[in-house]
């Protein structure tokens, strides 16, 4: 159990990279990039976890009564989710324009920039 979360994070990151490199459809590639990013969420939150601890949100909990997990990594991951959503939107906008101008979204058939 000790190292499983970190290995799952690495596995998700590398699977996303594999999908991104071997994709035959640019929308599928953008999906694989967001899978890559899910790997970073898992690693960050796994780093901040503490056994038998709860979330440091004291609306329904007396401060100091129970151990709490690390709030820092949660703030970092929150920023990362926002970045993920925006980069996905921008990439999809580019893919829509590529399909309009190239007539295809298969990277193998995009032949404009070579050499």
């Amino acid at each position: 159990m000790g190292v499983l979360p970190y290995l799952v994070a690495g596995w998700v990151f590398l699977t996303g990279c594999y999908g991104l490199a071997t994709s035959r459809n640019l929308i599928h590639a953008v999906g694989c990039l967001s899978v890559c990013q899910a790997g970073t969420y898992v690693l960050l939150l796994a780093v901040g976890y503490r056994h038998d601890a709860t979330a440091p949100v004291f609306s329904d909990l007396k401060p100091g009564s129970r151990p709490v997990v690390d709030p820092l990594v949660q703030a970092l991951t929150l920023t990362d989710v926002v970045v993920g959503a925006t980069v996905t939107a921008l990439l999809l906008a580019l893919v829509v324009q590529i399909s309009k101008r190239h007539g295809t979204v298969d990277p193998d058939e995009l032949s404009e920039l070579r050499g």
Binding site: M1, P5, R50, S59, P67, V68, D70, P71, L72, A75
Partner: peptide, 27 residues
């Protein structure tokens, strides 16, 4: 460090700073 360890210095400082400014949700 092992998963679920107790060594979170920055986190503990953040909780203390948040409580000092009366913000319930530390995140």
């Amino acid at each position: 460090p092992a998963f679920g360890g107790d060594h979170h210095p920055y986190g503990d400082r953040a909780v203390h700073a948040s409580l000092s400014r009366h913000t319930a949700n530390v995140i």
